[in-house]
Design a protein around this nucleic acid. Structure first.
Lengths: 266, 266
DNA sequence: CAGTGGTCTAGACCACACC
DNA sequence: GTGTGGTCTAGACCACTGT
């Protein structure tokens, strides 16, 4: 048994209590002072433990208010495509989901490999996301068959991610995404109401729960005229997001110097 | 005069000393114990100050060794395209630069706006970056005319970024990048030795110094067959990088589950 | 070994949010 | 005002690195 540092030990203990549901999503933890009594240690050490969990996205600490188990909607900087929703909400742009299709009993070897389950079948939701009537994202979301009912119940509310998390109680703390440039094919063009040749980002993303299970697999087409990616690095800080611009033009020189665009990228 | 927190005040003082060159790039700072004497405070407070500067990419702290003023090559997680170089070095893949062109006295309004200098002219270096003979990146780098000589002196060494930083003593701590999907045009195809229609990422990036000056502007074409983007989010941690794959194929299901690919994305 | 950074204490006091 | 998180002390002791 390796020697554990006190603050990591406490972080581990709190994490497993959260996994067990002792502290449910959105609920507050005891205050730092109380915790220091409970664990018979100093406040500084408790703070070290809480900082680890906040870094991992498991806790949200608010000065003067309390420490909360993270839930979607509480912390803004979460997983990329979900960020669309928050981002647009912030910009007071209204993104509307339209469900195009729901499929079940999909048995794809590739998707099985992603979910690390060789026998599973999957359900898939195809959505078109529009902003002021302009279709800007075509997205397919896959879930394990055991969440079939959750997907069926979803009725084009704002965020599938948030809906899913609330219904299942599963906390998503990790996401991985790969992106490549593509030219849209005919059906994709049709579904996005676009004509003529058009480039797009193809994004493939998996969302991973606190228990290290893959819970969501997304594929999205983000057409070039409306969507660009923006990233900012400041020291160890590293942010990127998609920027949606419904007019379909965005000059680089202007966007680099637009303070609005960059300030919230931390 | 707003009340300053002690650790931020100290961070500010150290930062300006670094700017003034009291502690040059790569050199070590006094030990935390010494600093606590100098500033007449406790070690914990000094650590708070150093943590801020490390976060900003200005310092590199190494357990048991010392605290150093960051210099390219010391910290691995720096600005994106420079990451190419380090990344490939790590993977023992050898990236070779070939200089295609050097232009001077460029007077573009757009670029002037980026550099926030209405009267400047610029120099531009066009490079082709190949990996095992395969051309994978076509890149144009612009610098202010006052660094014309530095650009001329550059002789296809490994990293322009590193060369530039060493020659000028300017520390780059910030970068902003926008990316869009494009179809390569004829001259780009030719320069990259590609034939037929081909999609690519077009990346435009500015590198910003410690003094908040734009020191480099890059435009790069990253053709789709060889380059994809990968990103990972884990709580507040947020990383993305370009992955180069010279065979031009990369299966998503396999890449998502490839531990090698994701582990170093922190 | 000596010198560096990393953890930890047991409090005091400050800053912020909410009633 | 009360309760929350944030800063700060003045040390002691632990862990890591290089000689």
């Amino acid at each position: 048994m390796a020697k554990q540092l006190r603050y990591l030990e406490i972080a581990q203990t709190l994490k497993s209590k959260i996994k067990q549901g002792v502290f449910p999503q959105g609920q507050s933890l005891p205050s730092q002072k109380e915790l220091s009594n409970i664990f018979n240690t100093s406040v500084m050490t408790i703070r070290g433990a809480l900082a680890v969990l906040e870094e991992e996205g498991i806790l949200t600490i608010v000065h003067g208010v309390g420490t909360f188990v993270a839930a979607p909607g509480i912390h803004t900087d979460s997983i990329s495509l979900q960020g669309f929703q928050n981002e647009m909400d912030q910009q007071k742009m209204c993104i509307v989901n339209r469900i195009l299709d729901v499929e079940h009993d999909i048995e794809s070897t590739n998707i099985r490999r992603l979910f690390k389950d060789d026998n599973a079948a999957f359900s898939c939701l195809t959505r078109l996301r529009t902003i002021e009537e302009v279709p800007v994202i075509l997205q397919r979301s896959y879930v394990h068959q055991k969440f079939r009912d959750v997907l069926v119940e979803y009725a084009a509310e704002k965020s599938l991610y948030q809906f899913f998390s609330r219904k299942t109680g599963i906390m998503v703390t990790q996401g991985r995404e790969i992106m490549m440039p593509v030219v849209l094919k005919d059906d994709e063009l049709k579904q996005l109401s676009l004509s003529g040749p058009c480039t797009a980002f193809l994004s493939k993303r998996i969302s991973i729960s606190l228990d290290d299970e893959v819970v969501l697999y997304d594929e999205a087409y983000l057409p070039g005229p409306y969507v660009i990616m923006a990233s900012r690095k400041h020291g160890k800080n590293n942010m990127f997001k998609y920027i949606i611009n419904k007019s379909g033009t965005l000059d680089s020189s202007e966007s680099f110097n637009d303070p609005e665009l960059w300030e919230d990228l931390i």
